[in-house]
Design a protein around this nucleic acid. Structure first.
Ligand code: NAD
Ligand code: NAD
Lengths: 208, 208
DNA sequence: ATTAGCTTGTGAAATCATTCACAAGACCGC
DNA sequence: GCGGTCTTGTGAATGATTTCACAAGCTAAT
């Protein structure tokens, strides 16, 4: 299949969230326009996004909320549970480990790792923090598909290398540093200071 | 001035970070190619990004690290301290309040607010948590330019409305819900579950 | 069965972003 | 001062994404 733009995947994920809300409200069908207004986009965009994957609607009627939800879940790979590990049990790592929003969307935290012996052994919402030396062994055993990186910037690249070597193929990084991964591994970074800098830019350029 | 793409602003922010590292290493000049390789982009992209704002380099030589850093800081509005408030002192709000990375980049947390009386009064790294009823008064007094939203999804829109009414013009939202702001206010959202869903998509479509 | 009223799916057009490619400028060594 | 070697700044070309616009399909009402 043709490569799909990340912006499209991002919107599909948003559409799914709105569909679930709609479903909870008891609606049976939804039009591209309604979906668009929720997501801050246009009806044409919604239809174009969906058209890359097939044809899900009924002309004159719209989309079946439940059928489209199911299709989007399928497309996004959310019909299953993903096992996730978190490395770094500091402030942000602990918050992520306890975040209910992940589990609700099918991402289960199966391990949390740290170097600091003061943190190892503690329990974060049912998952107990282990020493990072157990990382490789656990990855081989538990086969988590996704790893979250919540360690200091300078520890991030060596950690990525270990994770990749152990077989992790998708990484979400929170350390504010550029990282490289070999082909075949997907890396995404969330950089919060950078988000604030974009706001800063917007504030000083408010007049345009 | 012509409107600048967000992707450009994002890269400028990254360039600045690399320049600071370069400066710390004692380098005087840097070429677009060196800057590009750090940021995972191309030299042409770097030059084009900068060209929107002026001409900062010397042909044959490259850019003065310190002069370009200063220019980028100016462009991004980072030549000053920004005051930031955080609403919601739960797990993620507390992590953000204690995050050193913000202060290092000129963002100072001047207030943290919550509804929960068990959390009010605690101190998070020097800033003590106040009752959210003090929000409006404090915003009038402290004039924070930026607010971070770390409350449950259902509390987010009413909170945005209060913040906007009080004069906050830039908001970074961590609640996984769509929010609307009037024109003149900048809103950005960080949606971590969505980041994981993009990874999920990448994993199930690894072969393309 | 026909019509009226919606809404989809999709080529074509328009807009936006990135990459190419090269003239022009700067430095260095001789 | 000149030739050689770099590297910038930038139009033009390419590529990607979004928007437009409309034929075609479905429903419901009569
Ligand atoms: N706190 C935030 O809100 C926040 C926000 C954005 C980004 N970040 C980034 O997230 C990362 C962690 O930040 P934090 O505030 O949680 O810091 P922290 O110091 O609270 O936590 C870092 C943890 O990582 C552990 N660690 C260090 N090296 C390790 C390794 N090799 N293996 C396993 N664990 C290791 C430390 O023992 C510590 O517990 C940093 O890169 C930071 O820039 C934090
Ligand atoms: N924990 C995470 O890692 C994480 C990650 C991504 C997004 N989020 C999102 O961030 C938000 C907070 O998550 P959390 O895990 O910190 O939850 P939490 O329950 O630990 O914290 C929420 C806090 O907000 C406070 N609050 C509620 N309504 C408020 C109001 N009107 N004004 C001020 N404070 C109010 C609550 O008292 C509580 O202390 C949620 O929307 C969540 O989806 C959390």
């Amino acid at each position: 299949m043709k490569r799909i733009a990340e912006s499209t995947v991002r919107r599909l994920s948003l559409y799914l969230r709105f569909l679930e809300e709609f479903e909870a409200q008891g609606h049976q069908t939804i039009s591209s326009g309604e979906l668009a207004s929720q997501g801050g986009t246009t009806s044409a965009q919604v239809r174009k996004d969906l058209s890359f994957f097939g044809s899900f609607g009924k002309r004159g009627l719209g989309y079946s909320v439940s059928a489209l939800s199911a299709s989007l879940r399928e497309i996004l790979g959310l019909g299953r549970q993903w096992n996730v590990i978190i490395v770094g049990a500091g402030k942000i790592g602990a918050a992520l480990a306890q975040y209910k929003g992940f589990r609700e969307r099918g991402f289960k935290v199966v391990g949390v790792y740290d170097t600091d012996s003061a943190r190892v052994g503690r329990s974060l919402d049912g998952v107990h923090v282990k020493d990072q030396r157990e990382l490789e062994g656990d990855v081989a055993k538990l086969k988590p598909q996704i790893a979250l990186i919540a360690v200091p910037a300078e520890a991030a690249q060596p950690l990525v290398d270990r994770l990749v070597k152990s077989g992790v193929r998708a990484i979400l990084n929170f350390a504010p540093t550029p990282l490289t991964v070999p082909k075949g591994v997907t890396l995404r970074s969330v950089n919060m200071a950078l988000e604030l800098e974009i706001l800063s830019y917007a504030l000083v350029n408010a007049d345009d």
